[in-house]
Design a protein around this nucleic acid. Structure first.
Lengths: 238, 238
DNA sequence: CCAAAAGTGTTCGTCGTACACCCATGA
DNA sequence: TCATGGGTGTACGACGAACACTTTTGG
């Protein structure tokens, strides 16, 4: 027993600990434009430079917990859609110290977040295709997250997370067109979408987008979940 | 400048370093069975128990480098297909110390690895559906990796990495049937596969699987790469 | 000669795609 | 009344799915 304990101590003593951070790639969809929430650093190091919102992972929390903690702090939102992207482990990615980062991308509903809080923390929305230089490897993280968003939204209804809970079909089409940088035929889009029977009609119109107004729907998450378990693919175009 | 330096030091001093490991979920395909390479621990801690093959990430290497290092050590192989799966960051996942792990799954060609080396390191192949209890959260890692393999192999030709470089169409079909736990129609499978024009015929037969023998092919990686850049999906069934 | 796996074509239905007009409304 | 975006139907082609028999050869 004593031997085992000693060996165990040696086992860990042979290794070196490393700083571990998590960075959030936060997307929002505002007036037909895909945007990213970045952060003007209020403190050193790198004060004044732009970066993703991140944090060290603390000894008593998991990486997702750390990410949700900072997201809550800055947007006021719980229950944000967030998913691990990948780790960034280059030896010299952070000149200050050896530090690996777990990239996590988040999709937030632009009508829900706390605008005061965001402003207070020096966070700003940038259009994804007009991004400034960010610190360290953060631009690469954004690029990776965009690719993931594009690929994943082809087969999973994660785009819905970027729209208000009640949304119209033209809004969703517009979102898909922006994400995939491609015009879609509205008749085919609508037909395919409705054939999935995953939208619950609210029989109310949203009048903000046009004079005629467009019917509002909400997504049937429960039904989708059941379908997904049987290998169903949510795909709206090829 | 001095101020900045001091602030910077404080920035990192507020954080705590953590042990960081990487674990490899190594799949192989042998005689129609999907297998996993596990490791009987030769040293403490947990001597004698079964685990995935892993290592701490050293101060001077990235996580993929660490994974390739241990894979080379144990199988003798370079250039193994390997991809990050996800991180495992539960606070108490390792009772010995706070330690997060980056799971990476690997696909190896069962005809290529160094059997002597593997034996020497106490590594053993287990059928994936007859897995024993592994240490820590390693069974969860395997489950996650299997799900990834199933999903990803539907749209990307990663299954090829599990077959010898020269393989037959029935071999590939068999692999797909095993991965996706589903019988496929050989006529439709063959037709679809050949229509992609991604197999280079070798005009040689493999006689090991039947009396008649089956023609050998190799995969046209170059051609696939070009197609993939244009959004092409390698998919052999629904 | 026979068992066992490899290889080959056709039919049918579904789904993706292309395409043009009317509707409702606020200004 | 007109400009703007919302909503609807049809025809065609491609592709996935179902399905049965012949070929080869080692034993």
């Amino acid at each position: 027993m004593i031997t085992k304990q000693i060996t165990k101590i040696n086992w860990y003593e042979n290794a070196e600990k490393i700083f571990i951070a998590t960075d959030c790639i936060i997307f929002g969809f505002d007036e037909g434009i895909l945007k990213l929430l970045v952060f003007e650093r209020l403190v050193n190091p790198l004060k004044g430079e732009l970066s993703l919102i991140g944090s060290f992972v603390k000894p008593n929390e998991t990486a997702p917990q750390a990410a949700h903690r900072v997201l809550k702090e800055i947007t006021g939102l719980d229950n944000i859609f967030m998913e691990e992207l990948k780790t960034y482990t280059e030896v010299d990615r952070d000149s200050g110290a050896r530090c690996i980062s777990i990239g996590q991308y988040a999709l937030i509903r632009i009508d829900e977040y706390d605008k005061e809080l965001v402003k207070k923390h020096g966070a700003l929305w940038y259009e994804v295709d007009k991004l400034p230089k960010l610190v360290l490897d953060h631009n690469k993280m954004v690029e990776d997250a965009l690719n993931r968003l594009r690929r994943k939204s082809k087969f999973y209804p994660i785009g819905i997370e970027l729209l208000p809970k009640n949304f119209t079909i033209p809004q969703l089409q517009n979102l898909y067109e922006v994400i995939h940088q491609k015009k879609l035929d509205s008749r085919n889009f609508r037909k395919k979408l409705l054939s999935l029977k995953l939208l619950i009609p609210l029989n109310k119109k949203d009048m903000s987008g046009s004079k005629k107004g467009a019917f509002l729907y909400k997504f049937d998450y429960k039904k989708y979940k059941k379908l997904e378990e049987n290998g169903f693919n949510f795909s709206l175009f090829k």
